[in-house]
Design a protein around this nucleic acid. Structure first.
Lengths: 162, 162
DNA sequence: TGATTGGTTCGGAATATTACGAACCAAACG
DNA sequence: CGTTTGGTTCGTAATATTCCGAACCAATCA
Protein backbone atom coordinates (compact mmCIF):
# COMPACT_ATOMS: atom_id res chain seq x y z
CA UNK A 1 0.00 0.00 0.00
CA UNK A 2 1.43 3.32 -1.03
CA UNK A 3 1.32 6.43 1.14
CA UNK A 4 -1.43 7.78 -1.10
CA UNK A 5 -3.52 4.62 -0.88
CA UNK A 6 -3.27 4.62 2.91
CA UNK A 7 -4.38 8.22 3.06
CA UNK A 8 -7.29 7.54 0.70
CA UNK A 9 -8.35 4.71 2.92
CA UNK A 10 -8.24 6.80 6.10
CA UNK A 11 -9.97 9.73 4.46
CA UNK A 12 -12.52 7.36 2.97
CA UNK A 13 -13.45 5.91 6.32
CA UNK A 14 -13.89 9.38 7.73
CA UNK A 15 -16.00 10.67 4.85
CA UNK A 16 -18.07 7.51 4.84
CA UNK A 17 -19.23 8.03 8.39
CA UNK A 18 -19.33 11.81 8.33
CA UNK A 19 -21.42 12.02 5.16
CA UNK A 20 -23.17 8.67 5.42
CA UNK A 21 -22.02 7.51 2.03
CA UNK A 22 -21.39 4.06 0.60
CA UNK A 23 -17.78 2.96 1.11
CA UNK A 24 -16.90 3.32 -2.54
CA UNK A 25 -18.57 6.70 -2.89
CA UNK A 26 -16.47 7.93 0.02
CA UNK A 27 -13.31 6.48 -1.51
CA UNK A 28 -14.06 8.31 -4.73
CA UNK A 29 -14.35 11.61 -2.89
CA UNK A 30 -11.15 10.87 -0.99
CA UNK A 31 -9.36 10.16 -4.24
CA UNK A 32 -10.61 13.38 -5.80
CA UNK A 33 -9.49 15.35 -2.76
CA UNK A 34 -6.00 14.02 -3.31
CA UNK A 35 -5.99 14.55 -7.04
CA UNK A 36 -6.73 18.26 -6.88
CA UNK A 37 -7.49 20.47 -9.80
CA UNK A 38 -6.28 18.08 -12.49
CA UNK A 39 -8.91 15.55 -11.43
CA UNK A 40 -9.19 11.81 -11.94
CA UNK A 41 -10.55 9.94 -14.93
CA UNK A 42 -13.13 7.20 -14.84
CA UNK A 43 -10.46 4.68 -15.79
CA UNK A 44 -8.01 5.74 -13.11
CA UNK A 45 -10.74 5.51 -10.47
CA UNK A 46 -11.62 2.00 -11.62
CA UNK A 47 -8.03 0.82 -11.39
CA UNK A 48 -6.99 2.81 -8.32
CA UNK A 49 -9.98 1.71 -6.28
CA UNK A 50 -10.11 -1.79 -7.73
CA UNK A 51 -13.85 -1.56 -8.32
CA UNK A 52 -16.02 -2.47 -11.27
CA UNK A 53 -16.86 0.01 -13.99
CA UNK A 54 -20.53 -0.18 -13.14
CA UNK A 55 -20.00 0.64 -9.51
CA UNK A 56 -17.78 3.61 -10.27
CA UNK A 57 -20.21 4.81 -12.91
CA UNK A 58 -23.26 4.78 -10.64
CA UNK A 59 -21.46 6.41 -7.75
CA UNK A 60 -20.10 9.10 -10.05
CA UNK A 61 -23.60 9.93 -11.25
CA UNK A 62 -25.08 10.05 -7.78
CA UNK A 63 -22.20 12.21 -6.52
CA UNK A 64 -22.81 14.57 -9.41
CA UNK A 65 -26.54 14.59 -8.69
CA UNK A 66 -25.71 15.42 -5.07
CA UNK A 67 -23.62 18.32 -6.36
CA UNK A 68 -20.43 17.04 -4.79
CA UNK A 69 -18.36 16.52 -7.94
CA UNK A 70 -18.11 17.77 -11.54
CA UNK A 71 -15.89 17.10 -14.50
CA UNK A 72 -14.05 19.00 -17.18
CA UNK A 73 -12.74 17.80 -20.50
CA UNK A 74 -9.68 18.55 -22.59
CA UNK A 75 -9.99 19.09 -26.31
CA UNK A 76 -8.90 16.13 -28.34
CA UNK A 77 -9.58 13.89 -25.37
CA UNK A 78 -12.84 12.05 -24.86
CA UNK A 79 -12.16 11.34 -21.18
CA UNK A 80 -13.89 13.13 -18.35
CA UNK A 81 -11.72 14.53 -15.59
CA UNK A 82 -13.64 14.46 -12.34
CA UNK A 83 -12.98 16.93 -9.56
CA UNK A 84 -14.68 18.11 -6.41
CA UNK A 85 -17.08 20.96 -7.06
CA UNK A 86 -15.14 24.17 -6.46
CA UNK A 87 -17.27 25.16 -3.48
CA UNK A 88 -17.18 21.73 -1.85
CA UNK A 89 -15.99 23.02 1.50
CA UNK A 90 -18.47 25.88 1.56
CA UNK A 91 -21.30 23.48 0.82
CA UNK A 92 -20.26 21.07 3.53
CA UNK A 93 -20.21 23.97 5.96
CA UNK A 94 -23.74 24.82 4.93
CA UNK A 95 -24.94 21.38 5.89
CA UNK A 96 -23.14 21.60 9.24
CA UNK A 97 -24.85 24.92 9.86
CA UNK A 98 -28.21 23.46 8.94
CA UNK A 99 -27.66 20.60 11.39
CA UNK A 100 -26.75 22.96 14.18
CA UNK A 101 -29.81 25.06 13.48
CA UNK A 102 -31.94 21.96 13.63
CA UNK A 103 -30.30 20.93 16.88
CA UNK A 104 -30.93 24.35 18.40
CA UNK A 105 -34.57 24.20 17.44
CA UNK A 106 -34.87 20.77 19.01
CA UNK A 107 -33.33 21.94 22.26
CA UNK A 108 -35.76 24.82 22.36
CA UNK A 109 -38.71 22.53 21.75
CA UNK A 110 -37.51 20.12 24.41
CA UNK A 111 -37.18 22.95 26.90
CA UNK A 112 -40.71 24.07 26.17
CA UNK A 113 -41.98 20.56 26.68
CA UNK A 114 -40.05 20.10 29.92
CA UNK A 115 -41.22 23.41 31.28
CA UNK A 116 -44.77 22.35 30.66
CA UNK A 117 -44.29 19.06 32.50
CA UNK A 118 -42.46 20.64 35.43
CA UNK A 119 -45.24 23.19 35.78
CA UNK A 120 -47.92 20.54 36.12
CA UNK A 121 -46.09 18.82 38.95
CA UNK A 122 -47.73 18.96 42.40
CA UNK A 123 -46.20 21.45 44.86
CA UNK A 124 -43.12 20.36 46.76
CA UNK A 125 -42.39 17.54 44.37
CA UNK A 126 -38.81 17.48 43.07
CA UNK A 127 -38.68 18.58 39.48
CA UNK A 128 -38.14 15.90 36.90
CA UNK A 129 -36.07 17.95 34.51
CA UNK A 130 -32.91 19.92 34.70
CA UNK A 131 -33.23 22.76 32.21
CA UNK A 132 -30.06 24.71 32.75
CA UNK A 133 -27.75 22.72 30.54
CA UNK A 134 -29.97 23.32 27.52
CA UNK A 135 -29.16 26.99 27.80
CA UNK A 136 -25.46 26.25 28.06
CA UNK A 137 -25.60 24.01 25.03
CA UNK A 138 -27.59 26.54 23.04
CA UNK A 139 -24.95 29.10 23.92
CA UNK A 140 -22.27 26.77 22.60
CA UNK A 141 -24.17 26.11 19.40
CA UNK A 142 -24.54 29.79 18.75
CA UNK A 143 -20.82 30.35 19.26
CA UNK A 144 -19.86 27.49 16.99
CA UNK A 145 -22.33 28.69 14.38
CA UNK A 146 -20.93 32.21 14.47
CA UNK A 147 -17.43 30.89 14.09
CA UNK A 148 -18.41 28.69 11.18
CA UNK A 149 -20.36 31.46 9.44
CA UNK A 150 -17.38 33.74 9.71
CA UNK A 151 -15.14 31.16 8.09
CA UNK A 152 -17.71 30.44 5.42
CA UNK A 153 -17.95 34.11 4.54
CA UNK A 154 -14.19 34.41 4.36
CA UNK A 155 -13.93 31.44 2.01
CA UNK A 156 -16.79 32.72 -0.11
CA UNK A 157 -15.03 36.06 -0.58
CA UNK A 158 -11.79 34.35 -1.48
CA UNK A 159 -13.61 32.10 -3.86
CA UNK A 160 -15.25 34.93 -5.78
CA UNK A 161 -11.84 36.24 -6.74
CA UNK A 162 -10.88 33.10 -8.68
CA UNK B 1 -50.32 11.84 17.68
CA UNK B 2 -49.74 13.69 20.91
CA UNK B 3 -47.34 16.59 21.29
CA UNK B 4 -44.96 14.26 23.08
CA UNK B 5 -45.11 11.59 20.40
CA UNK B 6 -44.39 14.14 17.71
CA UNK B 7 -41.40 15.43 19.62
CA UNK B 8 -40.10 11.90 20.19
CA UNK B 9 -40.38 11.26 16.50
CA UNK B 10 -38.46 14.42 15.54
CA UNK B 11 -35.83 13.87 18.19
CA UNK B 12 -35.57 10.24 17.15
CA UNK B 13 -34.87 11.10 13.55
CA UNK B 14 -32.17 13.50 14.62
CA UNK B 15 -30.48 11.11 17.02
CA UNK B 16 -30.71 8.29 14.52
CA UNK B 17 -28.63 10.16 11.97
CA UNK B 18 -26.39 11.97 14.41
CA UNK B 19 -25.41 8.86 16.34
CA UNK B 20 -25.93 6.30 13.59
CA UNK B 21 -28.32 4.22 15.61
CA UNK B 22 -31.17 1.93 14.60
CA UNK B 23 -34.49 3.77 14.41
CA UNK B 24 -35.85 2.15 17.52
CA UNK B 25 -32.68 2.66 19.53
CA UNK B 26 -32.88 6.35 18.70
CA UNK B 27 -36.57 6.47 19.68
CA UNK B 28 -35.71 4.91 23.01
CA UNK B 29 -33.12 7.59 23.68
CA UNK B 30 -35.56 10.28 22.61
CA UNK B 31 -38.17 8.89 24.97
CA UNK B 32 -35.73 8.81 27.85
CA UNK B 33 -34.70 12.39 27.15
CA UNK B 34 -38.33 13.37 27.56
CA UNK B 35 -38.94 11.28 30.64
CA UNK B 36 -36.16 12.87 32.68
CA UNK B 37 -35.01 11.68 36.06
CA UNK B 38 -37.98 9.44 36.78
CA UNK B 39 -37.14 7.31 33.76
CA UNK B 40 -39.21 4.90 31.70
CA UNK B 41 -39.97 1.27 32.37
CA UNK B 42 -39.53 -1.57 29.92
CA UNK B 43 -43.30 -1.91 29.68
CA UNK B 44 -43.93 1.76 28.99
CA UNK B 45 -41.32 1.76 26.23
CA UNK B 46 -42.95 -1.27 24.64
CA UNK B 47 -46.36 0.35 24.60
CA UNK B 48 -45.28 3.92 23.87
CA UNK B 49 -43.09 2.93 20.94
CA UNK B 50 -45.36 0.17 19.73
CA UNK B 51 -42.48 -2.27 19.40
CA UNK B 52 -42.05 -5.87 20.47
CA UNK B 53 -40.60 -6.83 23.82
CA UNK B 54 -37.65 -8.50 22.17
CA UNK B 55 -36.72 -5.46 20.16
CA UNK B 56 -36.89 -3.17 23.14
CA UNK B 57 -34.94 -5.62 25.24
CA UNK B 58 -32.05 -5.96 22.81
CA UNK B 59 -31.80 -2.25 22.19
CA UNK B 60 -31.84 -1.57 25.91
CA UNK B 61 -28.94 -3.93 26.46
CA UNK B 62 -26.87 -2.49 23.61
CA UNK B 63 -27.56 1.06 24.80
CA UNK B 64 -26.40 0.06 28.26
CA UNK B 65 -23.31 -1.61 26.82
CA UNK B 66 -22.60 1.59 24.90
CA UNK B 67 -22.86 3.45 28.20
CA UNK B 68 -25.71 5.65 27.04
CA UNK B 69 -28.39 4.57 29.52
CA UNK B 70 -28.74 3.05 33.01
CA UNK B 71 -31.56 2.11 35.28
CA UNK B 72 -32.53 2.44 38.90
CA UNK B 73 -35.04 0.46 40.90
CA UNK B 74 -37.49 1.26 43.65
CA UNK B 75 -37.81 -1.01 46.64
CA UNK B 76 -40.83 -3.22 46.53
CA UNK B 77 -40.91 -2.85 42.75
CA UNK B 78 -39.32 -5.33 40.43
CA UNK B 79 -39.39 -2.96 37.45
CA UNK B 80 -36.34 -1.23 36.07
CA UNK B 81 -36.56 2.51 35.47
CA UNK B 82 -34.31 3.43 32.57
CA UNK B 83 -32.73 6.85 32.27
CA UNK B 84 -29.95 8.48 30.30
CA UNK B 85 -26.60 8.14 32.03
CA UNK B 86 -26.11 11.28 34.08
CA UNK B 87 -23.14 12.45 32.02
CA UNK B 88 -24.83 11.79 28.67
CA UNK B 89 -24.19 15.27 27.33
CA UNK B 90 -20.60 15.33 28.50
CA UNK B 91 -19.95 11.99 26.82
CA UNK B 92 -21.50 13.09 23.57
CA UNK B 93 -19.28 16.15 23.65
CA UNK B 94 -16.28 13.90 24.07
CA UNK B 95 -17.10 12.04 20.89
CA UNK B 96 -17.57 15.32 19.03
CA UNK B 97 -14.16 16.43 20.26
CA UNK B 98 -12.59 13.16 19.19
CA UNK B 99 -14.09 13.56 15.72
CA UNK B 100 -12.76 17.07 15.39
CA UNK B 101 -9.33 15.95 16.50
CA UNK B 102 -9.42 13.21 13.90
CA UNK B 103 -10.51 15.69 11.26
CA UNK B 104 -7.68 18.05 12.17
CA UNK B 105 -5.15 15.27 11.88
CA UNK B 106 -6.52 14.33 8.50
CA UNK B 107 -6.25 17.90 7.23
CA UNK B 108 -2.67 18.03 8.40
CA UNK B 109 -1.85 14.76 6.67
CA UNK B 110 -3.53 15.92 3.48
CA UNK B 111 -1.55 19.15 3.55
CA UNK B 112 1.68 17.22 3.94
CA UNK B 113 0.77 15.01 1.02
CA UNK B 114 -0.20 17.96 -1.17
CA UNK B 115 2.95 19.85 -0.35
CA UNK B 116 4.96 16.85 -1.44
CA UNK B 117 3.13 16.63 -4.75
CA UNK B 118 3.33 20.36 -5.43
CA UNK B 119 7.07 20.30 -4.74
CA UNK B 120 7.71 17.63 -7.34
CA UNK B 121 6.00 19.62 -10.05
CA UNK B 122 8.21 20.97 -12.88
CA UNK B 123 9.05 24.69 -12.70
CA UNK B 124 6.48 27.13 -14.05
CA UNK B 125 3.71 24.57 -13.92
CA UNK B 126 0.57 25.77 -12.15
CA UNK B 127 0.20 24.09 -8.80
CA UNK B 128 -2.38 21.38 -8.50
CA UNK B 129 -3.40 22.10 -4.95
CA UNK B 130 -4.67 25.05 -3.04
CA UNK B 131 -3.42 24.74 0.50
CA UNK B 132 -4.63 27.89 2.13
CA UNK B 133 -8.12 26.78 3.04
CA UNK B 134 -6.79 23.90 5.09
CA UNK B 135 -5.23 26.43 7.42
CA UNK B 136 -8.48 28.34 7.66
CA UNK B 137 -10.40 25.21 8.42
CA UNK B 138 -7.88 24.07 11.00
CA UNK B 139 -8.24 27.45 12.63
CA UNK B 140 -11.99 26.98 12.76
CA UNK B 141 -11.68 23.49 14.22
CA UNK B 142 -9.42 24.75 16.95
CA UNK B 143 -11.87 27.52 17.83
CA UNK B 144 -14.82 25.16 17.90
CA UNK B 145 -12.83 22.69 19.97
CA UNK B 146 -11.87 25.34 22.49
CA UNK B 147 -15.45 26.46 22.77
CA UNK B 148 -16.66 22.92 23.29
CA UNK B 149 -13.98 22.09 25.82
CA UNK B 150 -14.90 25.15 27.81
CA UNK B 151 -18.54 24.10 27.91
CA UNK B 152 -17.61 20.55 28.78
CA UNK B 153 -15.51 21.72 31.68
CA UNK B 154 -18.31 23.93 32.91
CA UNK B 155 -20.81 21.09 32.82
CA UNK B 156 -18.37 18.72 34.49
CA UNK B 157 -17.93 21.14 37.39
CA UNK B 158 -21.65 21.59 37.74
CA UNK B 159 -22.12 17.85 37.58
CA UNK B 160 -19.71 17.14 40.41
CA UNK B 161 -21.86 19.20 42.76
CA UNK B 162 -24.91 16.93 42.40
C1' DT C 1 -16.98 -0.31 -41.84
C1' DG C 2 -15.32 -2.79 -38.20
C1' DA C 3 -12.92 -2.38 -33.94
C1' DT C 4 -11.67 0.20 -29.93
C1' DT C 5 -12.49 3.52 -26.28
C1' DG C 6 -15.18 5.36 -22.69
C1' DG C 7 -18.63 4.76 -20.53
C1' DT C 8 -24.11 3.45 -18.97
C1' DT C 9 -27.88 0.30 -17.66
C1' DC C 10 -30.08 -3.55 -15.74
C1' DG C 11 -30.74 -7.68 -13.17
C1' DG C 12 -29.20 -9.95 -9.66
C1' DA C 13 -25.93 -11.89 -5.60
C1' DA C 14 -24.00 -11.18 -1.20
C1' DT C 15 -24.39 -9.15 2.85
C1' DA C 16 -26.03 -6.21 6.60
C1' DT C 17 -29.73 -4.15 9.25
C1' DT C 18 -33.77 -4.13 11.74
C1' DA C 19 -37.52 -5.85 13.93
C1' DC C 20 -40.48 -9.75 15.19
C1' DG C 21 -42.65 -13.94 17.63
C1' DA C 22 -42.35 -17.94 20.24
C1' DA C 23 -40.22 -20.14 23.56
C1' DC C 24 -37.96 -19.68 27.62
C1' DC C 25 -36.51 -18.24 32.45
C1' DA C 26 -36.19 -16.42 37.20
C1' DA C 27 -38.35 -14.02 40.89
C1' DA C 28 -42.39 -13.05 43.47
C1' DC C 29 -47.23 -13.95 44.52
C1' DG C 30 -51.18 -16.54 46.30
C1' DC D 1 -46.97 -25.68 43.99
C1' DG D 2 -48.96 -23.20 40.01
C1' DT D 3 -49.33 -18.64 38.07
C1' DT D 4 -48.25 -14.03 37.08
C1' DT D 5 -44.78 -10.43 36.23
C1' DG D 6 -40.85 -8.72 34.03
C1' DG D 7 -37.99 -9.64 31.11
C1' DT D 8 -34.18 -12.45 27.81
C1' DT D 9 -32.78 -15.42 23.90
C1' DC D 10 -32.83 -17.38 19.48
C1' DG D 11 -34.14 -18.30 14.89
C1' DT D 12 -35.76 -15.92 11.09
C1' DA D 13 -38.53 -12.85 7.96
C1' DA D 14 -38.46 -8.48 5.61
C1' DT D 15 -35.94 -5.11 3.82
C1' DA D 16 -32.04 -2.19 2.52
C1' DT D 17 -27.34 -1.60 1.03
C1' DT D 18 -23.61 -2.29 -1.78
C1' DC D 19 -21.36 -4.06 -5.38
C1' DC D 20 -20.76 -6.88 -9.48
C1' DG D 21 -20.91 -8.80 -14.48
C1' DA D 22 -22.85 -8.94 -18.86
C1' DA D 23 -24.94 -6.72 -22.21
C1' DC D 24 -25.34 -2.58 -24.36
C1' DC D 25 -24.42 2.06 -26.62
C1' DA D 26 -22.35 6.17 -28.81
C1' DA D 27 -18.28 8.34 -30.42
C1' DT D 28 -13.89 7.94 -32.49
C1' DC D 29 -10.15 5.53 -34.90
C1' DA D 30 -7.90 2.79 -38.51
Amino acid sequence: MTKKEKLIEKLGVHIESKDQLAPLAARILATLILSGKKGSTFESLVSELGASKSTISTHLTTLQAANRITYHTKCGDRKKYFTLVPDAMINSMSVMLKNWKNESDLHLEIMEYKKGVNAELPEGCTEIFDLEFHNDYLEFLSQATASMEKLQKKLTEKHKND
